[in-house]
């Protein structure tokens, strides 16, 4: 039928244009990065010793408390409080050191092992802390407590894993808070760099809080070079694939960026991405449901319209 041929021509040219302007052009414009599936294989060599040992959580606890970790990090589940508030900590270290309660579930074990022994290497920020720069990464490497250092690190990781919630209990919000929230705000879900902003009764309390956030941001700016971007819309602005690859290794997209590799495991990364979509695209489920109904309705409408046309044209042809 002639009309179908014409339709095929229209569809052909439309699709060619679409393909050139969207998938093809974007493929040329954006750097392609292959995901390594959060394997962190560049750390294999440095962590070979630790990963071959079986850790003991009880010994790990002593090592964590006596080895210096808790001088900077809080461990809320073990009733170990932070030694200073977030704003003061940031002015000392550049950023508030994370609470370690759930570090065992959020982060990859191999990454934790490398991090404890050599933070700048694990975080991929050695370009910022070169000998020439005279700067040291604020997290001090663990040099050992006198025994086999690999065994000691394995014990510490076993301890972190023993106190953490299970992967099933880890919510997207918890994963996000652990890995991202101390540097990035997410205004659409009420996050400042100091955490979710509470509701205050008086304006003066609210402004005092804002002032603290500004102070914290100043430390962060000095440490990172600029204020890390708000993450409210990033899931859509960068897309899921790019967000995932970026979380896995920021250097792969932005060579020389001050953002450290955060070292989350694959499951936690998915949770973080889910949380970013909760902010950027919160109505996606509603959209899918309603969309399906609307498509069914449109098909029904089209069938009725075709029948009506046939009815009217019966007298004409």
């Amino acid at each position: 039928m002639k009309e179908l041929k014409i339709l095929a021509v229209v569809i052909f040219f439309t699709l060619v244009t679409y393909w050139l302007v969207e998938p093809y052009a974007h493929g040329v414009m954006h750097k392609q990065v292959d995901s390594k599936q959060f394997a962190y294989s560049d750390l294999d060599e440095a962590t070979k010793g630790v990963m071959s040992k079986k850790g003991d959580a009880t010994r790990g606890k002593d090592l964590v408390v006596n080895g210096g970790c808790t001088g900077c990090h809080s461990i809320t589940v073990a009733d170990i409080p932070a030694t200073m508030d977030a704003v003061t900590a940031a002015s000392s270290y550049g950023v508030n050191p994370p609470d370690l309660s759930n570090s065992g579930v959020v982060y990859d074990a191999k990454f934790l092992a490398a991090l404890i022994k050599n933070p700048a290497q694990a975080l991929k920020v050695e370009h910022k802390f070169t000998p020439e720069s005279g700067k040291m990464h604020p997290m001090v490497p663990f040099y050992g407590m006198g025994g086999d250092i690999d065994q000691e690190v394995a014990d510490m990781i076993a301890y972190f894993q023993s106190i953490a919630v299970s992967q099933d209990e880890l919510t997207p919000e918890m994963a996000y808070e652990n890995a991202c929230a101390r540097c990035h705000s997410m205004k659409y879900l009420n996050w400042t760099e100091l955490g979710p902003k509470p509701s205050f009764k008086t304006e003066i309390e609210s402004l005092t809080y804002d002032l603290k956030v500004l102070e914290y941001q100043d430390s962060l700016k000095a440490y990172m070079g600029k204020l890390p971007p708000d993450l409210s819309m990033q899931a859509l602005a960068r897309g899921e694939t790019r967000a995932r690859n970026f979380i896995e290794d920021p250097q792969s997209y932005l060579e020389g960026t001050a953002m450290p590799r955060v070292g989350v495991n694959a499951q936690s990364a998915e949770k973080i991405i889910t949380y970013m979509f909760d902010s950027a695209d919160p109505k996606r489920e509603q959209r899918d449901t309603i969309g399906t109904y609307v498509i069914y309705f449109s098909i029904l409408l089209a069938i009725l319209a075709i029948l009506w046309k046939k009815e009217v044209w019966r007298d004409l042809k």
Binding site: A305, W308, K309, W313
Partner: peptide, 8 residues
């Protein structure tokens, strides 16, 4: 009727 068919 044809307009509406194409539209639908």
């Amino acid at each position: 009727s044809k307009d509406i068919m194409v539209l639908a």
